[in-house]
Amino acid sequence: MSALPNALALKRADSIERLWLLGLVTPAMLLIVITMVLPVGWLFYLSLLSDTGAFTTEHYVRMWEQPSYFRTFRTTFEVSIMTTAICLVIGYPLAYFLSELPKRAANLCMIAVLLPLWTSLLVRTYAWLVLLQRKGLINNWAIELGLWTEPIALVHNMLGTLIGTVHVMLPFLILPLYSSMRAIDRNYLRAAANLGASPMKTFWSVFFPLAMPGMATGALIVFILCLGFYITPAVLGGGKVIMVSSRIANDIEIFFNWGAASALGVVLLVMTALLIWIFMKLLKISNPVDRAIAA
């Protein structure tokens, strides 16, 4: 093969381009290594150390043997699943409504949906505490209106926790769901109707599957954020709804037991990763659109 003119120079241009690309991702890669990979490795290392600094698996064994840990994990998953479910029930129709609005109106409404995110989480949580307490606004009004006669425990229990978490999490569900609904060409719905599908049938056979990727993304984000949620459950649960994050905080603040706290963190991390993996697996089987999105 005879050498083509400029072959070498062109090849070098190729590799320079690749170097540039590599250069562009380097800061992000470094950041991830420093803030993610190193700390997680450190966490894992800590979870295998006893008080005296000797190597031990006692933290993991204790988690397995003590039923209180099992309860904590169960509560964590209960809160996360229920929050996700309630967010879906409230968020799906809302996202649908927004996606049907003209673009301008939808953008305005979207700002309203996102507004809570601009307020401090702590402020929002304590605001709920004020509203929901025994002599709070809601109990007072309900009694005055005759809805119930005695103050109801709306807070420092599962109910209060869920009210708080749903309120915080809702935008995270609506945002991806809305954009995936917005992207659905309304001609698909017209086509379905034209082919004989009733509005109900059109929804389930065309709209729902096409909005699925957005729904799955939103639900996954909410679920994962809930698993590690600390402030809102801690404040509104009032010590009765103990999630993994509260327990980690207790281990460190009260018992100064870094090993136990780290072990909890590692287990939560592994379980979350496992869940995402299962979730992705399920998605891939379900249909080709999701496959395309997941890919």
Partner: peptide, 20 residues
């Protein structure tokens, strides 16, 4: 009569084939 009860075939400009 609503569209789904009209029983007419239609070919759309951008085909509107269900991508899923």
């Amino acid at each position: 009569v609503p569209p789904h009860q009209r029983d007419v075939g239609m070919v759309f400009q951008n085909y509107a084939l269900f991508p899923h």
